[in-house]
Simulated assay, not measured.
Amino acid sequence: MAQHAACSGISELPAKETCIETSPIYRHKKLTENDSTVLEQIFDPESAPVAGIQIDASLPENRFIHDSAELQRLRSQEVRAIQMIEGLASSSRGGQPRENAIDAATSVMSKLIAAHPTYASAYNNRAQMRRLQHGDHVLVNPPTGTRKSEGLRDIAEAILHDLNTAINLATPPSPTESISKSQALILAQAHTQRGALLHATAKALAHSHLDPSEALATPHLFPGWGAERFEEASSRDFFLGGRYGNGIGRAMAVHTNPYAKLCGSIVQEAIKKEFRDQA
């Protein structure tokens, strides 16, 4: 959630090193600097221009709100809202008390957003609270007879709107522009959250016998999308989440793109062997 507390609906994955160390073959004397860069991006599925993200600790925490006292007040309200849920999660209580706590915390975030519509962190947190309440399969209609789908479309739209808004507010105007630590954290979490929703949707569609236009709660937002398209989009969001610093996003980017990773490893080994043979 916010940078002050972890109230994540995404289960932590085992720690796993996912970065491929830059191989000497990319800097071989026969290759130009441009050739080396191209090869590195092709053979390393995690490599992309966004890898050059520059985090500047001297930048203001928020691009739109520069009053430090006001930011501190907003963060304090966020922390209190998050603690409403965390306190319940650490107890044995559930059911209605849990729903009430999430509703109350979500209401706090909604008030923050109404008063400060450019405060990206509140959108990110509100989306996560709704995910905790409704689950990651919120973009897909439930099987007939399992639970009511009434209002599901509105909930799905609300979560996506919040994540999209958080990302838009925190993303710098230029991809080469430096960002603050706070911005990077919001982007890491929002992209990973959205990736989780899209990934859950991809899995649900892959096991559904229905056409996506019937299975999706929000087909108007994803016209023509099937399981593969959702999987690709989730992999991209996980990738971006990882690049901005989210460990889960980094691990899931590899998990959702195993063939590219395998292909990259095979090709790297083949080129290494070729250069060794020529040496």
Rank of each mutant, 00 (worst) to 15 (best):
M1S: 07
H4I: 08
H4D: 12
A6H: 10
C7K: 06
E12L: 02
L13Q: 14
P14R: 02
E17G: 09
E17T: 08
C19D: 13
R27E: 12
H28T: 04
K30Y: 12
T32P: 10
T32G: 14
E33I: 10
N34F: 13
D35S: 14
S36K: 00
S36L: 03
S36V: 01
T37D: 10
F43D: 03
D44E: 09
P45R: 00
P49H: 10
P49V: 07
A51S: 09
G52S: 15
I53K: 00
Q54G: 08
I55E: 05
I55P: 01
D56S: 10
F64H: 05
I65N: 09
L74R: 01
R75H: 11
E78L: 15
R80W: 11
I85M: 12
E86G: 06
G87D: 12
G94A: 11
Q96H: 12
E99Q: 15
N100G: 09
N100F: 08
I102W: 02
A105Y: 03
M109P: 06
I113V: 05
A115Q: 15
Y123S: 00
N124Y: 11
R126K: 09
R126A: 04
A127K: 03
Q128H: 04
M129N: 07
Q133C: 04
H134S: 13
H134F: 15
H134R: 11
H137D: 09
V140N: 03
V140G: 01
P142F: 13
K148G: 11
G151C: 08
A158Y: 06
A158V: 09
I159R: 04
I159G: 01
H161S: 15
N164M: 12
N164T: 14
I167N: 07
P173T: 12
S174H: 14
T176K: 06
T176P: 00
E177D: 09
S178I: 00
H191E: 06
H191G: 04
T192M: 05
T192P: 04
T192W: 00
G195V: 11
L197M: 10
H199L: 07
A200K: 02
A200W: 03
T201F: 06
K203I: 00
K203C: 05
A206E: 11
H207M: 03
H209M: 12
P212L: 00
T218V: 04
L221H: 07
W225R: 04
A227I: 10
E231R: 14
A233I: 07
F238M: 02
F239L: 07
L240F: 03
G242P: 01
G242E: 01
R243I: 05
Y244I: 13
N246L: 02
I248M: 03
A253V: 03
H255V: 10
Y259F: 15
C263Y: 15
V267R: 13
I271C: 04
K272S: 10
E274G: 07
E274A: 10
F275Y: 15
D277I: 11
Q278G: 05
